[in-house]
Amino acid sequence: MQAAMTARATLKGWAEGRELVELVRAAHRAGWLDQLRSGATVEKLAAQGVPAERVRSVLDLLVAAGVAEAEADTFRLTPAFDALVEGGEGITLSSTLEAVDLASNRIALATEPVVPGFTPAEALVLARDWGVGPTEDARQLYRVIYEALPEFRDHLEQGGPLLDVGSGKGGALLTTLTAFPGLRAVGVESVPEVIEETRRRAENAGVADRVELRAIDARDLKDVSEFAVCYWAQAFFATEARAGTLARIFDALRPGGLLLVQEILPQQAEPTVRVRLDLLFHRQQGTDFGRSAEALAEELSAAGFADPRIAATPAGRLVLAKKP
């Protein structure tokens, strides 16, 4: 009996996180989080019809979870959650909650013999959850990243052109375009619904006239020696598509052109449960999510690229290689 009770307690401990997510979702749906941005009291929230005692319990839980903070009788969101609810950096509470739901639903399929691919709607949820918006803070981050890659940065300053393969919602692509006013680019994404989202964001960012967005499989690229630089979002590509994608990127780059890829997960001797869940979620789709920078360098060399170099940046380890 003691063993069973221990296991039960473990499961209930795991459920704590999901229950807190649902509490945040409920508070968001009720409009409480918006009110907490400027500060609210128990009495103010209770005026909506929820008993004051229950309002107090919810607020105390949000404080304990680090979502809110209290000063005297007033409750406010913490700076981190205030930024998430405001959503100005392109990272929003709604998209985060959708991604949490997607991950939970997908993990539930882990023991099925075959896991279906993402629907267009699911691909859009995933795209919205990754990356940032083209804000000033994001541009500052990317400028620091490119300082660690001066040869890549120089091509961007000279106008590129840049090939962005696996653009998603265009976080990296649009931020880079706004950081380098003379840059021109082509973004490639296989899901038309995601490309439409990126196209809308490009219009809002004022860079639509400098970027061509293509809803195609990267293996169908026909460009030859057109681009000075390329960024490949390699972590989201199926294993069976990687070699063909790299071959098309190789052809599309000019001689001496540069390819940049990112190590998504830090390499750990003993991965955390969070890392293991991320790996399971993405690898169910047949990707090589989580490849090390060293493995990526070897892959680029095998595809014909020369002199792969691993660079440590604020975005983690990046690998830069050259087309001979």
Rank of each mutant, 00 (worst) to 15 (best):
V125M: 10
L149H: 02
T119N: 04
P134E: 06
L124Y: 06
V144K: 11
A127D: 03
T119H: 10
T119F: 10
D137Y: 04
A123V: 02
Y142P: 00
Y146A: 07
W130E: 13
L149N: 02
R139K: 14
D137W: 06
E136R: 15
G131M: 03
T135G: 12
E136L: 13
F152C: 07
A121D: 02
V125E: 05
G133F: 12
D137I: 06
E151Y: 05
P150K: 11
A138C: 09
E147I: 00
A127I: 03
Q140T: 13
V132G: 02
Q140L: 12
A121Y: 00
A123R: 09
T135Y: 07
G133L: 11
R128K: 15
G133I: 12
V132L: 14
R139W: 02
A148R: 14
P134L: 12
T119V: 06
Y146R: 07
F152S: 05
D129H: 12
P134K: 11
A148Y: 07
A123S: 15
L141E: 12
Q140N: 10
L149A: 11
T119S: 15
T135D: 09
E122S: 09
E151R: 15
W130K: 05
V132C: 10
P150V: 10
E122L: 07
A127S: 12
A123I: 03
E147L: 02
D137C: 04
L126S: 13
L141H: 13
G133A: 13
G133H: 11
R128G: 08
D129N: 14
A138W: 10
T119I: 06
D129F: 14
A127H: 05
E147C: 02
G131C: 02
R128M: 10
P120C: 01
P150F: 11
G131F: 01
A123G: 12
R128E: 15
E136Y: 03
Q140H: 08
P120M: 01
Y146C: 03
F152A: 04
P134F: 13
L124M: 07
Y142W: 15
A127R: 04
T119Q: 04
R143H: 14
V144F: 04
R128Y: 05
E147P: 01
T119G: 08
F152P: 03
E136F: 07
R143E: 12
T135H: 10
G131E: 00
A138Q: 10
R143S: 11
A148K: 11
A148M: 00
L141P: 02
A127V: 03
P120T: 01
P134R: 09
R143M: 11
D137A: 15
L124W: 07
A121H: 01
F152Y: 15
E136K: 12
A121I: 00
L126H: 11
A138Y: 09
E122A: 11
E122P: 06
Y142N: 01
V125K: 10
T135K: 08
V132Y: 12
A138D: 06
T135M: 08
